[in-house]
Measured scan of single mutants.
Amino acid sequence: MAAGGDHGSPDSYRSPLASRYASPEMCFVFSDRYKFRTWRQLWLWLAEAEQTLGLPITDEQIQEMKSNLENIDFKMAAEEEKRLRHDVMAHVHTFGHCCPKAAGIIHLGATSCYVGDNTDLIILRNALDLLLPKLARVISRLADFAKERASLPTLGFTHFQPAQLTTVGKRCCLWIQDLCMDLQNLKRVRDDLRFRGVKGTTGTQASFLQLFEGDDHKVEQLDKMVTEKAGFKRAFIITGQTYTRKVDIEVLSVLASLGASVHKICTDIRLLANLKEMEEPFEKQQIGSSAMPYKRNPMRSERCCSLARHLMTLVMDPLQTASVQWFERTLDDSANRRICLAEAFLTADTILNTLQNISEGLVVYPKVIERRIRQELPFMATENIIMAMVKAGGSRQDCHEKIRVLSQQAASVVKQEGGDNDLIERIQVDAYFSPIHSQLDHLLDPSSFTGRASQQVQRFLEEEVYPLLKPYESVMKVKAELCL
């Protein structure tokens, strides 16, 4: 049975990233139509530049190519590739079939990587351009969430054990800070992308030097003109047959890092959902379990974690691919890159769409948070109580021993009897502590235990987050809708 299948058929496997999760716009960027249309555009740009620099290419040939950029006979191309065992030459023939007058000058002087690699770089750039505003929107939604809850005390956790208090907004800023680093890295790697350009079979530009009869300047002009037509500021000066596969490492490393950030955020949300302090959106008709109707599973956060793990592992592909590119190139890269580049971007696209949807509907339960604080705060307040007693004339050592005994009794009630923490009640009825009984409410005010959390939130948002989001103001209103 021949390899390949009808990918629109229910009898043929289709990647869930495309069929179930990723956005239509990201799927289109990695589609065959987008790819092969870009090949034709690159052939047109090459012909236009070659004509401008004096090669015998007519206006009629150029116009014929322009008129057929979208006229792609995919069936013919597939048949040609089956016959020739070469995808680029299959599309040269297919393009030439609908451009008979231009057929002889299509791909003039070029090698397969002229269309293959340059198209990949265009796709990487455009895919990054799709991700950047999506990530900015996630940051914006979380920034709104953090600002609104900047002063809401909550129990902090280290080692997932109760620690000092923080605020809900401050905790959210930990998430935002990681995503801001990801946004900066995505922008950097996007701006650092260079075009492969017009380089020939081993990167020496020998074929173009021959076409222009040894004119170095025209060869350099050709490279520059096509690079500018493709919208790049610069091209690699040095290439082998391909652009260095280190570029793929750079791009997928940034995406993998984004995956790590999203995994951490969504894990926190899942843990908070278990504590009943916070939940992701839950639709009115949504079913959490087929057997347990009360369940409210954090399905979206779980999906993000599941896909983020996949995204983090994909960076190993370009690392290994770059390491086995012998001399000017081997074909070890080809099949692998067809999979890992598309999957990385479709996965990143999915987790950003999902995280935006989550961040637009996060639900906080202040009463649950308050109750958990009441359970733990008495123990945390013991040092403040000791200091207040010393100020009232008591002995630190005597007070410490009193607190120690009462704390152990209260802990026994919590752990052995399943009761509430009654340390404060014990202190309130103990005559030894009568000098500070009137101060206990103040000493137990949760806001006095959150330090500068709310001020940190305000400063972080104003100095770091809002300036970073400013270039994306025009796209901030787009909502994230999930079908599944």
Rank of each mutant, 00 (worst) to 15 (best):
N421P: 07
S207A: 12
F157Y: 04
Q320A: 08
S407H: 11
S67Q: 00
K415C: 15
W43F: 07
M476A: 08
K477E: 10
E80Y: 03
L42H: 01
V168S: 06
D191S: 12
C98F: 08
E360P: 07
G156M: 02
A411Y: 12
R171P: 07
L255R: 02
P24W: 08
E425C: 11
C266N: 02
P16V: 06
L271T: 08
D333C: 07
Q286A: 07
I403G: 08
G200H: 03
T313F: 03
F28S: 12
G197A: 05
T227L: 04
S447K: 14
D317M: 09
N71H: 04
Y472H: 09
I369K: 00
L222T: 02
Q416H: 12
F195G: 10
N297E: 05
M316V: 02
E80T: 13
K233D: 07
S301W: 13
F145E: 04
G451H: 03
A381H: 00
M316S: 05
H310Y: 08
M387H: 13
V262P: 03
D349G: 10
K276P: 00
L252Y: 07
K199W: 07
L209W: 08
F160S: 10
C173T: 07
K233Q: 14
D191G: 08
V475S: 01
D6F: 00
I358Y: 15
H159M: 01
E343F: 01
E302W: 02
L132C: 12
S474E: 01
S438F: 15
H91G: 03
F433E: 08
I139N: 10
K295G: 15
G5H: 10
H91E: 12
G5S: 12
F157S: 04
E81N: 08
V254R: 13
M380I: 15
L69T: 01
F282S: 13
R338W: 08
R338C: 06
V315A: 03
A127K: 10
L341M: 01
S23A: 15
S474L: 01
L255S: 00
S67L: 12
H217M: 04
C483H: 12
D178C: 07
D422V: 02
G419T: 15
R371V: 01
L406T: 09
A78P: 10
I358V: 04
C173F: 05
R85M: 12
R188S: 01
L53A: 05
D445V: 09
E64Y: 09
Q409K: 02
